[in-house]
Computed example of a mutant assay.
Amino acid sequence: MSDVAIYTQPSCPYCSHAKALLESRQIAYEELDVSGDPQVLTEMIERTGGRTFPQIMVGNQAIGGFDDLRSLDSNGELLPLLQTQRGKTDTGGI
């Protein structure tokens, strides 16, 4: 299981941008498409408190949407956050 989960819906440009940023940094993620499963949408709201897309989790920490992800990356905080989560879960590679 990946340290990063991203809740998405089809045709969401911010979801595409978030996935592209993660892929450009070679960060594995689990995509959870809420469009076909109301339970996944309920899970997203409960885990993140958010109702917009995407909603991104790093480990058990909700970091918000694409703008928040981009800000963490721009400020050099994304990789250290992932490394911290990796240490907590001991999953191996990012």
Rank of each mutant, 00 (worst) to 15 (best):
M1R: 15
M1F: 15
S2L: 04
S2Q: 10
D3C: 14
V4G: 09
V4F: 13
V4K: 05
A5K: 13
A5H: 14
A5Q: 12
I6E: 01
T8S: 04
T8V: 05
Q9M: 11
P10Q: 12
P10V: 05
P10F: 12
P10G: 11
S11C: 08
S11W: 06
Y14W: 08
Y14F: 13
Y14A: 08
S16W: 09
H17G: 07
H17L: 12
A18E: 02
A18I: 01
K19G: 05
K19R: 06
K19P: 01
A20M: 15
A20V: 11
A20R: 13
A20I: 10
A20S: 15
L22G: 07
L22A: 12
E23Y: 12
E23P: 05
S24T: 11
S24L: 14
R25Q: 14
Y29E: 02
E30V: 04
L32V: 06
L32P: 00
D33C: 01
D33I: 02
V34L: 01
V34Y: 01
G36V: 03
G36M: 06
D37Q: 01
P38D: 11
Q39C: 10
V40R: 02
L41F: 14
E43C: 10
M44P: 00
M44H: 04
M44K: 02
M44F: 05
I45V: 10
I45T: 10
I45P: 00
E46L: 08
E46M: 08
E46Y: 06
R47I: 05
T48R: 02
G50P: 00
G50W: 10
R51C: 10
T52C: 12
F53D: 04
P54D: 06
P54I: 03
P54V: 05
I56H: 07
I56P: 03
M57L: 15
V58P: 04
V58H: 11
V58E: 11
G59L: 14
G59Q: 15
G59F: 15
N60F: 15
Q61F: 14
A62H: 09
I63L: 14
I63V: 15
I63A: 14
G65V: 03
G65E: 07
F66G: 02
F66Y: 13
F66A: 10
D68C: 09
L69C: 10
L69F: 11
D73Q: 09
D73N: 06
D73R: 06
D73G: 04
S74T: 03
S74K: 07
N75Q: 06
N75L: 08
N75Y: 11
G76V: 00
L78Q: 11
L78W: 08
L78H: 09
L79A: 13
P80S: 10
P80H: 11
L81E: 00
L81M: 08
L81G: 01
L82G: 08
Q83S: 12
T84F: 15
T84I: 12
T84E: 14
Q85A: 13
Q85H: 13
R86I: 06
G87V: 01
K88L: 11
K88G: 08
K88V: 05
T89Y: 09
T89V: 07
T89M: 09
D90E: 12
T91E: 14
T91W: 07
G92Y: 05
G92K: 01
G92M: 04
G93R: 03
G93F: 08
